[in-house]
Write a protein that binds this DNA or RNA. Sequence first.
DNA 1: ACGAGAACCTGTTTGC
DNA 2: TGCAAACAGGTTCTCG
Length: 277
Amino acid sequence: MPELPEVETVARGLRLPLEGQRLAEVEVRVPALRWPLPRGLARRLTGRQVLSVGRRAKYLLIALDRDEVLLAHLGMSGRILLVPAGEERAPEPHDHIVLRTEAGSEIRFNDARRFGMVDLVPQPALEEHRLLAGLGPEPLGNAFSGPMLAAALEGKATPIKAALLDQRVVAGLGNIYVSEALFEAGIAPRRLARSVQGERAERLARAIKSVLHRAIAAGGSSLRDYVQTSGELGYFQHQWAVYGKEGEPCPGCTCGKGVRRMVQSGRSTFYCAVRQR
DNA sequence: ACGAGAACCTGTTTGC
DNA sequence: TGCAAACAGGTTCTCG
């Protein structure tokens, strides 16, 4: 589920129910996700006030009073479910962490596969946190550009597909948006990263920004459903050009061959063999 | 040092 | 229909 646009959508959806609220009750129902949860997490969170909800790469950053930040990653299958104040809903399987605010709404972290991660970090140490320290630039940040991307790809002997999944190169892209961005930029997924320079890097940086912006806009339009019901993908899935479209005609392309699927380092890549070079 | 593949889990879809 | 295999939006670890 969660690449940058999905996490951004979740962060936006959590602002209203969480910001300014005190956590009246906290339940931690599993000992570990990907790693053991911080000791005494429920106790340490109870009574704390939420100052703000933000995002870095695919991480949710929930800033608390007393200078601590709740850091959360949704892994592959993680979702945030919101139960509005006044509604009762029995805990469902894999509802691992449940936060209840003073106002009565419930925020649940549900993650069937438990690839997600949660940590509680002192604010001053946030940037050096082992999960955040090595992250590359935010693709939607002002600093991110063709030349910056070109520099990050320089000398890399790996396919561009794999390089873009590397969070040290750019932070926040995942398997879906890499396929989409490469299609939009007209770059073949197998092309070596080091050969993406100059105008190609420029096109790719632009495509990345454009795809992410459009996905966030679509996620935003389905924001309530997204957070409240199941955490499923927002409406952007209806706008995918190639992802999951093997055999279908590629949009705006007259190649007649349709979208192809291949496997690169164990993961599906969708592309047009004619338009992407 | 770098890149490819395995490993971590469970749920759903696909194929025989 | 039933069952097994393949596959799923991520990251880290190991090995060559």
